[in-house]
């Protein structure tokens, strides 16, 4: 563990807490893409298959349980909770995310560390996480103005993988064998997808104005 990865995990945790706060406090999921939440639930379920078989540390196990539990709880809320699901705007959340799942699965069968179920699922989860934010970004551009909590959720979600890139650079220079190319390249793509969001987020912060994404 290094400070960059710990900062990344805490930033990721904050993004989840901000989203839970938004849904719980406002009893609304307006501006949130259910498809991105479903993709993230799939990312965690397919990445943490070895949750009970491959114990690394209490921290690792706890964080995995938090990410799996919160992502499933958010999907459940947006699909089942009577008040929250009413605020879900499925006419705007129209990204065909099943194509993302299929493309990532095909890529994972071709590019992986070992052609085993565990490694193919792990590579699948890494590729899927890189593109999971697309439905959410498309929804934000369609819905124009973004409420504060939703903007902060997306910001922290994007920032966490940027910390992981610093972690991979650190591990590259401090460890003998660097075997994290799949996660590293996918992480760079993932962070790059947030580039324009980060730009408009910074502008809104600098001008102390509402976050506006150009349609």
């Amino acid at each position: 563990m290094n400070i960059f990865r710990f900062a990344g995990d805490m930033t990721h945790l904050i993004s989840v807490l901000v989203l839970l706060l938004k849904i719980y406090a406002t009893k609304s999921c307006s501006g949130i893409s259910l498809k991105t939440q479903e993709l993230y639930a799939l990312v965690f379920l397919s990445r943490y298959l070895d949750l009970f078989t491959n114990y690394i540390s209490l921290y690792n196990t706890l964080m995995k349980l938090v990410f799996i539990g919160s992502s499933l709880a958010i999907v459940w809320c947006m699909r089942m909770h009577h008040a929250v699901k009413r605020s879900y705007d499925k006419e705007v959340d129209t990204f065909r995310h099943y194509y993302l799942v299929l493309a990532c699965f095909v890529l994972a069968t071709l590019v992986n560390e070992q052609f085993t179920l565990r490694e193919v699922c792990w590579a699948f989860s890494i590729y899927l996480e890189a593109v999971a934010i697309l439905p959410q970004l498309v929804l934000l551009q369609r819905s124009g103005n973004v409420d504060n909590l939703t903007g902060q959720y997306v910001f922290f979600l994007g920032a966490y993988r940027a910390f992981y890139i610093l972690n991979w650079i650190y591990r590259y220079f401090t460890e003998q064998y660097f075997t994290r190319w799949i996660a590293c390249i996918a992480g760079i793509v993932q962070t790059a997808l947030y580039a324009d969001f980060f730009y408009y987020y910074f502008i809104s912060w600098k001008n102390n104005a509402k976050l506006q994404l150009p349609a």
């Binding site: 990865r5 690394i56 690792n60 995995k64 560390e113 070992q114 490694e119 792990w122 996660a183």
Partner: peptide, 10 residues
């Protein structure tokens, strides 16, 4: 386990 990639990151 030796030989299997260790995914110690979240």
């Amino acid at each position: 386990p030796i030989g299997q990639p260790m995914h110690d990151e979240l």
